[in-house]
Write a protein that binds this DNA or RNA. Structure first.
Length: 968
RNA sequence: GGGGGCUUAGCUCAGCGGGAGAGCAUCCGCUUUGCAAGCGGAGGGUCUGGGGUUCGAAUCCCCAAGCCUCCA
């Protein structure tokens, strides 16, 4: 591992130089967007240009809070998990990378982009790279770029290569394959790291396109075309855009490698200290194949820390699950390095030290990030432990319990210590209990227990060849799927025992499981996506529902699952798009409005329909799911929308949600972070990041705080303002939510105090709210539960829903109290008393039954002296008891068997029948189970059991005993 | 959103249609100069909750809850 020379600029310095260089060229410096993607096309932010998609699509280059400028520059953190398996295996794959970018929105074009890139790389004031080591590629027919490179910059022609649309176009192969939309050629800049990294030449690169020596450091993309539908013969249609853009990306890790002149990404100033620490912790040098694990741990700790700092929490679904998988991969590799205790979290400070300057959220979230990683590590180590146990049992089942050793006495097999605890289990299972005492197995068929040797039937065990031992793919998959045990660890451990894993079988099982998962996931979404396609051309719907619950609008479009339609007849259902609507569309956790539509049709007839749900497309087109009940709905007619009264209940729950959020933060601390919410007419649900269950006292305090707020009857106000202004005013924004330039801020004007703290609520929110907190009415917390690691869910009710729930609860409690002849206050004591009484009574019953049994057996009933009869070659004692069942009946049978000297005892009672036989009788062919069947049949019952013990439920004990005469 | 697994004594778990068990821990007794320990014994259970099948359910089926885990 090479270490960067101390004189070389650090990664942080390179980042800063890049940004200030482009500032000096008139660019606006913007902070990195969160790793949570700005649009729903990806889970995470994957490219420097992604936050600027709207600008590339023609939106104004306005950046509220920072300024307006058609030139911007950023260092964007990106997370790419598509080829996560390669991270660590190579020296340059990273899941987290930083893209240094400069962007032009219809402003400068190729000339400036390329000449500035050149200046930044070669000027001694900036990167100061040797110009003779720089190379470039261009799109095959991009003569404009060719001219700039060769004539204006002076790059020798033999430092240039031309590639087709697969290499030098963005998106790749767009002309032939699409998608439609903005696209263009690109020009990549390479650096020749010298012969130390390979003896290939630039000319050869045209063929190989793979080089450790020529490292791509910068991609300049020129989105100058709009691709349209190709012609009938397939000829691509590329139309020049009126406003041409520039989108460039320079990988910080790549350029740092070059500038610091280190061997690989992992030797730069960010990773080197982490790798060094891993070496220190594990005692394993950063060398050879094992170094994969060092790299995986270092890289993944960095990307997981960054993502957690952006507010993602580890979970079982979506983003949180992806991060968790990455963290577990790191944990697994730490395990492979021999680390058995949680250590990844101790590396977080190193990440913060090198990255925290550029990403302050790392610093402010360090404690939370560290705690989350630690908790997950601990959980995973537990999972591994359980998996190893299960795997060892599986290996033991194959017969691999022993270490093979060559000694002067020949080959011996010694039971592995870790297998001792499974040994009994395995051989009990196999019916070979005697083996549980074996210390040594010899190949000659003898086994040793202490100093004694015994013959053992273990030829099939000692003769195993390693190749005979295959762990089924199914078992390996179960280990992974059900117990979370990674298959590569399975392979590694199995190998120690000379056992191989059936990988084909594993792959088959995996595929089968994935197929069921896919089939199982509903395609309910496709309805909306389908609609999105068909409404792409419609303009956004005007929403007036904050102020009006009734409004008129023009029908713009009608759709069914078939696509656009011209009419919706009475009795049919479909999606309706209006120019203006009072219906709130599902969003921000609040459910869509319901209600009705009314109109007078072209035919002059009145019509009406029911709005079942309202949703909207990302483009802001509202989709009303409507069932037409009368008349016909056609485009261009005016309809009146009337929102259901349920909206008021929804509004109460929504405002209550805000108060709940603020109250939780007040009571539990600012660590509380909203992780999702549902606002419906009948309830509210609020998920938030918090480590532990709420105590009863905390729940009561949260509830009290919200109630106090409600009774203060403060005004709820909302206003639109630029996002920067909203944030400056301290409004709570959600991680992962996308906000436009102007946002709606909902605030409760007025605050309440709790424990000396003043608490108020101000949130970015597009939802519908009551106008005064007093309208919320009652508020009650129903439950606090765990939904994912570190995420709690609270359910609560407001308004009538709350009072109705409380009334119902009180009524049922009152009924309960009345049935126990006590008051609500006395209920707890009463139930405790009853439980104690019940327990005492049960004990007493057992006692009494035992006494009753004994009395009957020794009493005048002839019981104690039950005569022995000879039946079917067995001495049989039969006895009738009354009022005895279950345990006592069996106890009586035992006693009778002991005292009477019988081979078989039969005890009949009014509720049951028990037959027991001695071992010796069973050996001679007695079968209690079969006998009990015959007797029960005669006594109007059924039963069964084992040869030595059987039971039946019967109605007539006398009949059962009589049947004994003929049963043999 | 869809799979799989687990839930039994204070703890770790076995049992998987016919008497609720083991080890550790607890308590008592014995042994020991004392400690560590050993020996013997005892107490401790709504077998997660609810419904069903069965003569009989910890055990089989269905529903629910909590935890673990994989996939989309």
């Amino acid at each position: 591992m090479t270490v960067p020379p101390t004189t070389a600029p650090t990664t942080a310095q390179i980042r800063e130089k890049y940004l200030s260089f482009f500032e000096s060229k008139g660019h606006l410096r913007l902070p990195s967007h969160s790793l949570i993607a700005p649009d729903p096309t990806t889970l995470f932010t994957v490219a420097g240009m992604q936050p600027f998609k709207p600008q590339f699509m023609g939106a104004a280059a306005k950046f509220p809070g920072y300024g307006d400028n058609p030139r911007v520059t950023t260092a964007q953190k990106c997370l790419r998990v598509g080829d996560i398996e390669n991270v660590g295996r190579t020296l340059r794959h990273c899941s987290l990378l930083e893209m240094l970018g400069n962007f032009s929105f219809g402003d400068y074009f190729k000339r400036e982009a390329l000449t500035w890139a050149w200046e930044f790389l070669t000027s001694p004031e900036w990167m100061g790279l040797d110009a003779s080591k720089l190379y470039a590629t261009i799109y095959e027919n991009d003569e404009e770029a060719f001219g700039i490179w060769t004539q204006e910059i002076g790059l020798p022609e033999d430092h240039l290569l031309r590639f087709g649309a697969d290499e030098n176009f963005w998106p790749a192969d767009a002309p032939a394959k699409g998608p439609n939309g903005p696209c263009g050629p690109c020009s990549e800049i390479f650096y020749d790291r010298g012969p130390a990294y390979g003896d290939d030449t630039w000319a050869e690169y045209a063929d190989t396109r793979e080089s450790a020596r020529f490292l791509e450091i910068w991609n300049n993309v020129f989105p100058q075309f709009e691709r349209q539908e190709p012609q009938a013969d397939g000829t691509p249609t590329l139309v020049e855009l009126p406003a041409k853009n520039i989108d460039t990306g320079m990988g910080l890790e790549r350029v740092a490698t070059v500038v610091q002149d280190v061997f690989d990404f992992y030797s730069n100033d960010v990773f080197a200290p982490i790798i060094a620490r891993i070496v220190e912790l594990s005692g394993k040098p950063y060398l050879g194949p094992e170094s994969i694990s060092h790299r995986v741990v270092a890289e993944h700790v960095r990307s997981v820390s960054m993502t957690l700092a952006d507010g993602v929490s580890l979970s079982n679904t979506g983003r949180g699950y992806v991060i968790r998988k990455i963290l577990r991969r790191a944990s697994r590799h730490a395990y492979l390095l021999g680390l058995r205790e949680p250590v990844l979290h101790t590396l977080v400070p190193l990440v913060v030290a090198s990255m925290g300057g550029a990403y302050p959220e790392l610093v402010s979230e360090e404690a939370r990030v560290t705690a989350a990683i630690r908790a997950e590590e601990e959980r995973f180590l537990k999972t591994l432990e359980g998996g190893i146990q299960r795997l060892q049992v599986a290996i033991a089942k194959l017969g691999r319990l022993y270490d093979r050793q060559n000694s002067s006495d020949g080959v011996t097999y010694t039971i592995r210590d870790e297998h001792r605890k499974y040994h009994d289990w395995v051989y009990t299972k196999f019916g070979r209990e005697i083996y549980s005492k074996a210390d040594i197995m010899n190949p000659d068929g003898m086994m040793t227990i202490g100093r004694a040797s015994f013959p053992a039937h273990i030829a099939q065990i000692t003769d195993f060849q390693p190749t005979d031992l295959i762990l089924s793919g199914e078992e390996a998959f179960t280990l992974y799927d059900t117990y979370g045990f990674p298959v590569d660890l399975t392979k590694e451990i199995a190998e120690e025992y000379g056992v191989t894993v059936d990988e084909a079988g594993y792959a088959e099982s995996l595929e089968k499981a994935q197929a069921t998962a896919r089939a199982g996931s509903k395609y309910g979404k496709s309805e909306l996506f389908g609609a999105q396609d068909t409404v792409g051309d419609l303009s956004a719907t005007a929403f007036v529902g904050y102020d009006h619950l009734e409004a008129e609008g023009l029908v713009l479009a009608l759709m069914t699952s078939e696509g656009r339609v011209d009419a919706l007849e009475a009795g049919t259902a479909g999606t309706v798009v209006l120019t203006q609507t009072p219906f709130y569309a599902e969003g921000g956790g609040e459910v869509g409005d319901t209600g009705r539509l009314e109109w007078t049709g072209e035919d002059g007839l009145a019509g009406a329909g029911v709005v079942r749900d309202t949703r909207k497309t990302p483009g802001g087109v509202f989709l009303h799911e409507v069932e037409v009940q009368a008349g016909t709905l056609t485009p261009d007619i005016t309809v009146r929308g009337v929102v259901d009264g349920a909206r008021q209940a929804t509004e109460r729950h929504h405002t209550a949600t805000h108060l709940l959020h603020a109250a939780l933060r007040a009571v539990l601390g600012d660590g509380v972070r909203q992780a999702g919410s549902l606002v419906a007419p009948d309830r509210l649900r609020f998920d938030f990041a918090h480590g532990a269950a709420l105590s009863t006292a905390e729940l009561a305090e949260v509830e009290r705080l919200v109630s106090r707020w409600i009774s203060a009857d403060f005004a709820v106000q909302w206003q639109e303002m630029p996002i920067a202004q909203a944030k400056a005013a301290g409004a709570t924004a959600l991680f992962g939510e996308k906000y436009g330039e102007t946002v709606r801020v909902v605030s409760v004007e007025g605050s309440v105090t709790l424990g000396g703290h003043t608490v108020s609520s101000k949130e970015l929110c597009g939802g519908a709210h009551v106008t005064r907190t007093g309208e919320i009415g009652a508020f009650v917390l129903l439950s606090d539960e765990n939904v994912a690691a570190g995420v709690r869910r609270i359910e609560a009710l407001a308004g009538e829903a709350a009072t109705a729930w409380l009334r119902e609860r009180l009524n049922s409690d009152a009924r309960l109290a009345a049935s126990l002849n006590t008051s609500l206050e006395g209920l707890e004591v009463r139930v405790a008393q009853l439980q104690a009484q019940l327990k005492a009574a049960e004990k007493e019953t057992v006692q009494v039954r035992r006494q009753l049994t004994e009395a009957q057996m020794s009493g005048g009933n002839g019981g104690g002296a039950a005569p022995l009869r000879e039946l079917g070659g067995f001495r049989v004692a039969a006895l009738k008891l009354t009022g005895i069942a279950g345990n006592e009946l069996r106890g009586a049978a035992d006693k009778l068997l002991d005292t009477s000297g019988a081979d078989l005892v039969v005890i009949a009672s009014d509720a049951g029948l028990v037959i027991k036989a001695t071992k010796e009788a069973v050996a001679r062919g007695a079968h209690a189970g079969q006998l009990v069947g015959k007797l029960a049949a005669a006594a109007g019952g059924k039963g069964g059991g084992r040869p030595d013990m059987a039971q039946a439920g019967i109605q007539n004990p006398d009949a059962a005993l009589e049947a004994l005469d003929t049963a043999f």
